[in-house]
Amino acid sequence: MSEPPVTPEPPGAAPPSREATDRSPWNWLLFLPIVVPLVPALFNMDSPRLFGFPAYYWLQLAFIVLGVATTSVVYRMTRVRAVTS
């Protein structure tokens, strides 16, 4: 992973009146991967099996992808916002 150096905002570029914040509508997306893995009705079953895995196992492993996708999207979207503003 190459890490682009984070360039500090040049002095005077941002008006000092503008308060820093983490607020973003994108943050609401984070609830999705928190709630879905906590609802057993969604995954507590044997079929359909995938590569021999009962649904209970492959679905919960698939939720990892959901979590990664969500945090990645939120990171990207909130980062872009911070740069353009």
């Binding site: 984070l30 609830f31 999705l32 991967p33 928190i34 893995p37 492993l61 939720f63 979590g67 945090t71």
Partner: peptide
């Protein structure tokens, strides 16, 4: 059996859960 698999949802939900908290 299945009850022991809680470690997977646990370590999935923890990251979105603390995403904003840890930044602060």
């Amino acid at each position: 059996g299945a009850a022991g698999f809680f470690a997977v949802p646990y370590t999935i939900i923890v990251y979105p859960l603390v995403f904003l908290v840890l930044l602060r």
